[in-house]
Amino acid sequence: MTGHNTAHHAVPVRTNLLVWAALMVLTTITVGVTSFDFGFLNVVVALTVATTKAGLVILWFMHLRYEGRVIRLMVFTAFVILAIAIGLTFFDVAYR
């Protein structure tokens, strides 16, 4: 029942630096693309980049990549519930 910390995966420094670099590049991109106007797609682009960044943080910095199935399923559930709350509200506000 007692898991031991040392058995745990230590993320290599190089991986952490690479993730950081990717986050920086994505930040540059998301700021850079604001000089183009895609109309409605602006929000979609911004949120896609943000979600990619969030994914990097969750998977590597927060070690979700190295966690077992239980925690991964839990994280997935939480975001699904949030998506449901926001999504179903739009049945009201989008059709009013």
Partner: peptide, 17 residues
């Protein structure tokens, strides 16, 4: 903030080593 997150991740890795 992103850089602070990097330092945090590095801190954990350092402690694990």
């Amino acid at each position: 903030l992103i850089t602070s997150s990097l330092f945090m991740a590095l801190a954990i890795s350092a402690l694990q080593r």
